[in-house]
Design a protein around this nucleic acid. Sequence first.
DNA 1: GTATTGTGTAAGCGTGTACTTACGTTACCC
DNA 2: GGGTAACGTAAGTACACGCTTACACAATAC
Lengths: 197, 197
Amino acid sequence: MPRPDQTSEKREQLVPIVARAFAELGYRRTTTAELARRCEVRENILYRLWPDKKAMFVAAIEYVYQVSTQLWQKLLQSDEPGASSAERLLDYEAKHHGELGLHRLIFAGLSETDDPVIHDALQAMYGRFHRFIARQIADHRDDTSAAGRKDAEVTAWAIVGLGTVAAIGRELGLIKATGRKRLVADVGKFLLEGKAR
Amino acid sequence: MPRPDQTSEKREQLVPIVARAFAELGYRRTTTAELARRCEVRENILYRLWPDKKAMFVAAIEYVYQVSTQLWQKLLQSDEPGASSAERLLDYEAKHHGELGLHRLIFAGLSETDDPVIHDALQAMYGRFHRFIARQIADHRDDTSAAGRKDAEVTAWAIVGLGTVAAIGRELGLIKATGRKRLVADVGKFLLEGKAR
DNA sequence: GTATTGTGTAAGCGTGTACTTACGTTACCC
DNA sequence: GGGTAACGTAAGTACACGCTTACACAATAC
């Protein structure tokens, strides 16, 4: 009998490194050779863990999604008094925005969306993010009517937009840390309270 | 004496095609061969018009910026009664959002921002867009105080975020046309009126 | 006409890249 | 200890890509 298969453990071990590489370099510039270098293994070892480069990218997206939502879930469970879940999420994002490179991964993927696999992975992740935020908003507003839920959905997209533009502004050196914080926290709260109709 | 130089005319003729290619395919996937194919010329002709592929991309960015702002300027000059410039811009963008592929070009460039040339081109364009919108907001609100201008800046970023997330939502098939219209027009107007403090 | 120089065609060059193959070594279970 | 299959190393393959070169042709000014 041979030794036990450790592929899945190895995958879990390497996925954070892979995700960081894709976030830093984008999809095309992240060569398999570069991935192997950062992971300190040979290329063919990566190809034993994933069928091709695309699968590595999809794994990276799913990893970042999981880490982000786990982090958010933890944040929501630690119930502080005096602030709703939605408010706490906004404060957290205002402070720690973009640390995981989520948006950079999205930008990298958006140039590859005619590939159905990448398109679907991105769509699933982005869609789940949006629904998560929309639910927090509806809870915060305590409005479960049909119109209220619809409104929470639209507002959720606007808040996702805040995070996205904050990421771009940081990337291009156009919005400094204080500006980003103000953008996400202040405008975020404004959107959260008001009803956009 | 030789025949007159027509390089700049040729550049102007080909730039729209080049821009469309980069918007559709992203930076890396837009090969010089593909550019030549779409332009119906040989590759070396492109290299007589621009020093390298990067320059073609930068030219595409500048072209899309110019077309967009020209279009907006025209929109602002045709003064309809009963709606401020800012409102008309929002309505226009809600209807025709993303037609020029501006956001796709930005996403393409954002994966190449460690290249200083691309970074600077993107920064300049995005920054000018933001200032343009911020000015419209300040005018609309008729508040030229320091705090008012600062607020208009933050709001302008939020509105740029609306456009960006609408583009992503469209790209991923997550927000349909009606939803995008509602997002840009309704939330846009909400941001425009309210003061986010 | 002719010299001069822009314009178009075709081929190719060096490098980078996704992915593979071949093979030796190691750790496990019986 | 021995059979087995996971694990690691190294080299290689086929192709695509950015960019260049060589050269024939065309149009203009004199």
